[in-house]
Amino acid sequence: MDTDQRKGRDDGRDETEAERADRRWQEVIQEIRVVQTGVQILLGFLLTVVFTPHFQRLSQTDKTIYVVTVVLGSLATGALIGPVALHRIVSGRRIKPRAVIWASRLTFTGILLLLATLTSALLLVLRVAMDDSYVPWLVAGVLVWYLLCWFALPLWVRLRYTSGD
């Protein structure tokens, strides 16, 4: 293979653009498998709530929070299934490096929507379970935890352990 096709990289990888795209595609798919299961279980549960007798007794505010939560969960599901449809539609077109970029964007969007879904669902559940002024503070605390685990820590690690090039 000539040197134009295979380029050694500073990270020790010796892969072509196509090989890199294949590897990155597999990484994205693995990430989606992790979050998609949780989103599907959460959305499935949320979709059944409206059919319970207790739902009819919820306040209008709680019903609104419920609708927002279901819509957010549906949007998260769509964003996380999107990369599979994208791959199916563009497969064989020799645009995998671009497809990987779009799949990564959809996955990140899905994670953001999952964050909003979980926060909204927690708000609803705690409002129904506690009817207490502490609920917004508890939800805010969990949201901060999610932000720390999902974004602050990875960004800190990225900044701390990657070189400036």
Rank of each mutant, 00 (worst) to 15 (best):
M1Q: 09
M1L: 11
M1N: 11
T3H: 14
D4S: 14
Q5V: 14
R6P: 04
K7T: 12
G8N: 13
D10F: 06
D10G: 11
D11N: 14
G12H: 04
D14V: 15
T16H: 08
A18W: 11
A18V: 12
R20I: 12
R23G: 06
W25K: 10
Q26G: 07
I29T: 12
I29V: 15
R33P: 00
V34I: 15
V34G: 04
Q36I: 07
T37K: 03
L42M: 09
L42G: 01
L43Y: 07
T48S: 10
V49E: 05
V50S: 10
F51L: 13
F51P: 13
T52S: 12
P53M: 08
P53T: 11
R57W: 05
L58N: 08
Q60G: 12
T61C: 01
D62L: 09
Y66P: 01
V68C: 02
L75A: 13
A76Y: 07
G82A: 15
G82I: 02
V84K: 14
A85L: 15
R88G: 04
V90K: 12
R94L: 10
I95N: 09
P97S: 08
R98P: 00
R98N: 07
R98I: 08
T107W: 05
T109P: 00
G110L: 09
G110K: 04
I111Y: 05
L112A: 13
L112M: 14
L113D: 09
A116E: 06
A116W: 04
L118Y: 08
S120C: 11
L122S: 09
L123N: 10
L124Q: 08
V125P: 00
L126T: 03
V128N: 04
A129P: 00
D131F: 02
Y134F: 07
P136A: 00
W137H: 08
L138M: 09
Y146M: 07
L147A: 11
L148V: 06
C149M: 15
C149I: 10
W150S: 05
F151I: 07
A152N: 01
L153E: 05
L153W: 13
L153P: 00
P154W: 01
P154H: 02
W156K: 07
R158M: 07
R158K: 12
L159K: 15
T162L: 13
T162C: 04
T162Q: 13
